[in-house]
Design a protein around this nucleic acid. Sequence first.
DNA 1: CTGTTAGCGCTTTCAT
DNA 2: ATGAAAGCGCTAACAG
Lengths: 334, 334
Amino acid sequence: MTIREVAERAGVSVATVSAVINENKYVSDELRSRVLQAIRDLDYRPNRWAKSLATGKGYTIAYVVPDITNPIFSQITKGIQEVANGQNYSVILCSTNFDSPTLQRYVDWILEMRVDGVVFTGSHHQQSLDEMIRIVKAGIPLAAAMAPGSAEFVDRILINDQEAACQAVTILQNQGCHAVAFLGVSESTTSLKRLRGYQEAVTVYSPELTAFGADFTWQDGYTAMQAILSRGCLFDGVFAGSDLMALGAAAALREHSRRIPDDIQLMGFDNTYAHLADSPFQSMAIPAFDIGKTAADVVFWRMNDRQRPPTTTTLQARLVGPAAASRKGEFQQQ
Amino acid sequence: MTIREVAERAGVSVATVSAVINENKYVSDELRSRVLQAIRDLDYRPNRWAKSLATGKGYTIAYVVPDITNPIFSQITKGIQEVANGQNYSVILCSTNFDSPTLQRYVDWILEMRVDGVVFTGSHHQQSLDEMIRIVKAGIPLAAAMAPGSAEFVDRILINDQEAACQAVTILQNQGCHAVAFLGVSESTTSLKRLRGYQEAVTVYSPELTAFGADFTWQDGYTAMQAILSRGCLFDGVFAGSDLMALGAAAALREHSRRIPDDIQLMGFDNTYAHLADSPFQSMAIPAFDIGKTAADVVFWRMNDRQRPPTTTTLQARLVGPAAASRKGEFQQQ
DNA sequence: CTGTTAGCGCTTTCAT
DNA sequence: ATGAAAGCGCTAACAG
């Protein structure tokens, strides 16, 4: 089913058919309706490959992400989709599963596909930076969402980690906490920023109230909390690096017969699971959907101005309390 | 950067360059190395659009999904990716957010893109069926994962809902439960199958031990559990339609001072959140990753045999208990 | 207003 | 073993 067949059937030239489809040239009503009829008769659909080849535009943007299973990242995906689809672009998902060869293959593919733009959420590993460089060098607009600090050569969308952490701890203090523990992740620049915010908020910084895991998982939260508990120091608040860590911490606290929120105030980060806990806790919500939207906006914006120096957009995390939390988890199977 | 420039630089014809790249014709070592060198020098990458146009193959398969945020669906995505990438195909994500126009736009797009295959997870609404029909009519191989029963005209990948439900209830009974309550979803064929399995397992079927929500959410589980509790009938086990429902049910039970698992044995379905609960419960795990893999396999298989009548593949749900559950939730931020 | 035609970059006979 | 050239389906000057 080609444009030529449509043209023949309608008794016009291919140029006319093209003009009708793209509505970019004046065509008499007479011919237009004949063409439209032929298109319907034949159930014709323009071939995107040919169109892209001829125009040099693919109308696709790629989203590179380490793990689509992560709720934050799938929310970001949604945000990207929302604005991309609004501009008639489609989004190609490149989920690398934290695997180097996979990441590299995807970037190769992105380069071959002549994708119009890329949103990138990577890790702090060097490879992420290298791959971003390859994309940028190829002249493809790229926005890095929640990128590590070292990615200043590219448009970035960040959240106010330090400030948010400071706010979170301050809120706990205002709610009556005298000593807030901090559960972080070593080797994470994000966690480091939050630690700074924490230090900013506490009047005196006691290292024995902090503990660090290898990652933002339940297990890391559990272990870190145990570590602090075993030190025997007093505390009445806990600020965890992620909701999953908070959940792990809650389990550890429970084993030590500390009650939430009676004995201990718990605060998570990212608001992915806070409302599902037995004793719902507060959490600083990462505006993941908006991050996605903003990242896509930045990509489109960059498409029209390739010269401007790299930009940084900072979005605000916001507190979500047990009261405010909607318990309506979305889960539909069919 | 075109194949012609590479050819000129290497002092050969474009046909030779093409042959070197695709390794499908004999080329002397001499020329091959000159070509490869030129490719490196120019950092040349073949243009996928042109290639696809010339060959009629796009090496992409699309995954249509109502909501990528749903952990089950993102697991399926991973499975699809795994096999697709293994065959050098890429996966395009079409997340419709349960929105009709979006779904339609995506299918239009799939048709224009001349995608090589489609994996479809839809709802039980008529539109899903209609869109699947459009795709199939266009001659594109399509596998429906967890599709409603009415989609027999297409390759399907299902799970043994009825049998799994029967097993789940039987397990509860073997663990000492005398009366198991059932929390389902009205208007869901999946839930209906599970209800049948439930009925199969219980010796006497008491409708007052069942309740149905509008969806598989926390809230629905909470409300349904409340409904049963308010009837005052005795029960010592609960089989919920999803882990989220189970979590909601747990909250309701807690409010009525019923302890898990001391007073009540709780069983979820899908194993998405069971291990995160305060009192971890059992759950029938949906093999989502395998569903994705199988669906993709079926698509590839269908690509090579378009005549064979539609197939149905059934995968087994399996029990995951609190003991077996790994508490290592995956959650990495950066 | 409409049609002719030359590409877009790659593959693939078919000669040589 | 290599190259010339004819497409793949569409767009966009350019002519009329």
